[in-house]
Design a protein around this nucleic acid. Structure first.
Length: 848
DNA sequence: GTGCTGGAAAAATGT
DNA sequence: GTACATTTTTCCAGC
């Protein structure tokens, strides 16, 4: 149930009946849709005119729907100008066109606003915790966080990214009176808003709330029909029920947003409307079980990721390469490793900065055209799984005199995306001084339907940048690069040790060499623990390294590389180490490689694909965020794009079906390290990976190339097909995946390690293959170090009796102690994954 | 007056 | 079930 309301925009919002640039289908929306409440019909504003008829949908409490169903207060959809321009690489051109078509248009405040439950996307308003303070519930407060989104729903960067007269949040009347209030209260507002925070408190709000007039109505609008329906229902249950589908896009394709008043053409492909998604697979239907609308809208495309984004563009959780051919998207200046994110209840904590002062800088190399492009930025995860939008953090647009880079906010699925223009005149380089980080309450997100991640201690993120480069033939090349990890909590940033650099990353097993660690929060009594982990994450060996306390400094630590437990390894062994400042105060795992003593790395059993490649990065399941590029090596090229295309690759084989063709076969011997992964991929019949490029060279992967002109193209990983949480990685897995969501998760995340240096976005390019060459990594990898609880100071060194890749388990001179990690959850995943691996290996052996 | 910060109290959770 | 330790959120105050 949703209604369309004109809002205070008035006539200006009326949808024109025609527009040269828009497709006819749009007309249906307004003229053929019985249930639609058009602006023109309700110039007065919300609810005001909603009596009976179509307005019923829009309801004010007490209304009855046409079908007799009780009218529920529902989310509103405000329709104003919409040019129907899709996001495309020529967005700017579109803008220009629009401008021409609408001379004099002054970028009036965005009149078109889509207030959908989908806004909840990244925050379920209904989930405000009881403890939330008034401020946290206040519309303004919430608005402050989302203002941009809602205020400029139509402001599409695509049309005119660099300027932003109307981009400034909170300053325009339009925003004041309408979008903000609406966005904040209607969409984000929690049903729990207390009367004291009633929207009516503000004239502005009142203006558009008008008819709905009651707090109840507002609550209902939050989508939450649960307000009424759910009273008495446990909060958690209700929240879950309220969860919305991922595909709900909050923003309508802005093609003409900045245009301003002239009512935008109504012609637009219905499919492009985000609210269509909302309407159907969306929030409302899902949670409120609202009867079908009497009128016929264009069928929502199940897969379209977002209205504003071309359906063919890769979903945000798709892994993309950072470079392809002549193009390379690179982070020239990395962000600081710490940035305290702000809550909605707080004011902004500013833009993410660079460690050396200033701000992060991103540049697209190899692009020689004169057309500006749009750089997208969103907050991604930094754990050991595949890079994907972070559920607990959102990028926050920063504006003000200190910000030189214009930007625009959009929401794709449940992720807020900042769009920043990349201009040829600036060498396609952008200073990211407009991006802050917003922290969403764990309780709000965890209860979201399909959300499997937990927020506690999940405080590391990465800035993820994407750019879509138009290619001849209407195709688009999508590149992506992620920053180093950024710790976003207050406490952690101040107390947890952080290793940013290490002077050595490999050394012979004899050890003894001094290694200098650079970072933060080191203490004189900080300990450095070397750890070798089995593929399943269990610690096979632990050894505390000696530290030189005399040379101690808060930002540097000198340690002596301990001898490896097995002095007879024949090939490099990857281990990890971390700095420990005390119980629960550990740095992320850092990678280190032990080399055979006096023995050149020579042999590798042909069948031992699990053996890590010699120079390859670290091992330990990609646990850590090594500041340096783990994979500076090789990631192979994918000769056959068709099998590894990231986007629009329906043909990609299922991840599950493509488990690494591990020759070795014994699941327990599998090395899930990134290196192993890549090797496995290489051997996979599905993906042919070439030899790794020379060290230092960026990995080459088949970029994502998609046919822009295929609106109907289904996106395998499109949110529209399943809840994000369910298929975060679905990029590579078919919607019909036979694996349970959780498993899916575990299978997909092939990302070796979270924090990847900008230079080596391995995970990124590995990803393209993931669909075809799924590694059994993911959950197999260890949880963040901070999670470990069974730390035992007495057990080191420890050895795992089981054979290791070095093939000389029995040679280990030290007694073995098997250490078990307590993560039952991971074990669950492991069990599932192992089973799959076994099955897979069976088929693989046959194949080989 | 608005942001941006650094601190820290209050709450929520976990051990 | 309680006490204590950690983390997360919310508030404050200063610049």
């Amino acid at each position: 149930h949703y209604g369309y309301a004109p809002s205070s925009v008035g006539p200006a919002l009326r949808l024109p009946t025609t527009h040269s640039s828009l497709p006819a289908p749009c007309h249906d929306l307004q003229t053929s849709t019985p249930g639609l409440v058009l602006p023109a019909e309700h110039p007065a504003g919300y609810g005001a005119a909603l009596d009976g008829g179509p307005g019923g949908y829009f309801l004010s409490s007490g209304h009855v729907r046409p079908n007799g169903a009780p009218a529920l207060e529902s989310p509103r959809i405000e329709i104003t100008s919409y040019l129907g321009l899709h996001q495309s690489n020529s967005q700017f051109l579109h803008d220009a066109e629009v401008e021409d078509a609408l001379p004099g248009a002054k970028r009036p405040a965005p009149t078109a606003t889509l207030s959908l439950p989908g806004l909840e996307a990244y925050r379920d308003p209904s989930c405000l915790s009881p403890a939330s303070s008034l401020s946290s519930r206040s519309c303004n407060s919430e608005a402050s966080s989302y203002e941009s989104n809602y205020s400029y729903p139509y402001a599409s960067p695509q049309t005119s990214p660099w300027q932003s007269p109307c981009v400034s949040p909170k300053t325009t009347e339009a925003e004041e009176g309408f979008p903000r209030g609406l966005g904040a209260c209607m969409l984000l507002g929690s049903p729990r808003h207390s009367p004291s925070t009633s929207p009516r408190a503000s004239v502005t709000e009142e203006s558009w709330l008008g008819a709905r007039s009651s707090v109840a109505a507002i609550n209902a609008l939050t989508t939450d029909g649960s307000l009424d329906l759910g009273d008495g229902v446990p909060l958690k249950a209700r929240k879950t029920a309220l969860e919305q589908p991922p595909s709900v896009a909050l923003k309508v394709e802005p093609a003409g947003e900045e245009l301003g008043s002239p009512p935008p053409p109504t012609d637009f492909a219905p499919e492009d409307f985000s609210f269509q998604h909302v309407r159907k697979g969306g929030f409302c239907d899902q949670y409120l079980a609202v009867p079908q609308h009497p009128y016929q809208w264009a069928k929502p495309r199940p897969l379209s990721p977002t209205p504003y984004m071309s359906p063919t563009l890769p979903a945000l959780d798709w892994q993309l390469p950072s470079h392809s051919g002549p193009y390379e998207l690179r982070i020239e200046v990395q962000p600081k490793s710490h940035h305290r994110a702000h809550y909605e209840t707080e004011g902004s904590r500013g833009a993410v900065k660079a460690s050396a002062g200033g701000h992060p800088v991103v540049q697209l190399h190899g692009y020689l055209e004169n057309e500006p492009l749009m750089l997208q930025l969103f907050i991604g995860t930094a754990d050991d799984r595949l890079l994907r939008p972070h559920a607990f953090y959102q990028v926050h647009r920063i504006t003000g005199k200190t910000v030189s880079t214009t930007s625009h906010e959009a929401i794709l699925s449940n992720t807020k995306v900042l769009e920043i223009p990349l201009l040829p005149e600036n060498n396609m380089r952008a200073v990211i001084d407009c991006a802050g980080i917003l922290k969403l309450r764990n309780s709000d997100i965890e209860l979201r339907k399909g959300e499997t991640d937990i927020g506690r201690k999940n405080t590391r993120v990465r800035l993820v940048f994407r750019v879509h480069v138009p290619q001849p033939g209407g195709r688009t090349l999508s590149l992506q690069v992620a920053s180093n990890p950024i710790e976003c909590s207050q406490r952690s940033a101040q107390e947890l040790p952080l290793v940013e650099k290490q002077s050595t990353d490999s050394y012979p097993v004899v050890g003894g060499k001094k290694m200098v660690l650079s970072g933060h929060n080191f203490l004189q009594d900080s300990k450095v623990i070397f750890v070798e982990k089995a593929p399943d994450g269990h610690h096979v060996w632990e050894m505390e390294a000696k530290t030189d306390r005399d040379l101690y400094k808060p930002n540097s630590l000198v340690v002596e590389i301990p001898p490896f437990r097995n002095q007879r390894i024949t090939s490099p062994v990857h281990v990890s180490f971390y700095v420990c400042n005390g119980k629960r105060k550990r740095s992320q795992y850092q990678r280190f490689t032990y080399l055979p003593a006096n023995v050149p790395i020579i042999k590798t059993e042909p069948t031992d694909d699990f053996e890590p490649a010699p120079t390859c990065g670290p091992v330990s399941q990609g646990l850590s965020p090594l500041p340096r590029p783990y994979f500076s090596q090789p990631l192979t090229t994918l000769p056959d794009p068709s099998s590894c295309l990231v986007a629009g690759v329906p043909a990609c084989p299922r991840r599950g079906a493509l488990m690494p063709a591990a020759p070795g076969t014994s699941p327990k011997l599998q090395d899930f390290s990134p290196t192993a992964y890549s090797k496995a991929i290489t051997s996979s019949g599905h993906c042919h990976l070439g030899l790794p490029p020379p060290a230092g060279e960026a990995p080459t992967i088949t970029p994502t190339v998609q046919d822009v002109p295929r609106p109907a193209a289904a996106h395998p990983g499109s949110p529209g097909q399943a809840p994000p949480a369910l298929l975060p990685q679905q990029v590579s897995a078919p919607p019909s995946g036979s694996h349970p969501p959780g498993l899916e998760h575990s299978l997909c995340p092939s990302s070796p390690s979270p924090p990847l240096p900008p230079a080596a976005q391995e995970p990124t390019y590995l990803q393209p293959c993931s669909p075809a060459c799924p590694p059994a990594t993911g959950r197999l990898q260890h949880p963040p170090p901070t999670v470990r609880r069974d730390e035992s100071p007495t057990a080191r060194p420890r050895l795992l009796p089981e054979a290791r890749e070095d093939g000389s388990p029995n040679l280990a001179p030290i007694p073995v102690t098997v250490k078990r990690e307590p993560e039952e959850l991971d074990q669950l995943y492991l069990d599932d994954v192992n089973e799959i691996i076994r099955n897979d290996l069976s088929s693989t052996s046959t194949h080989s």
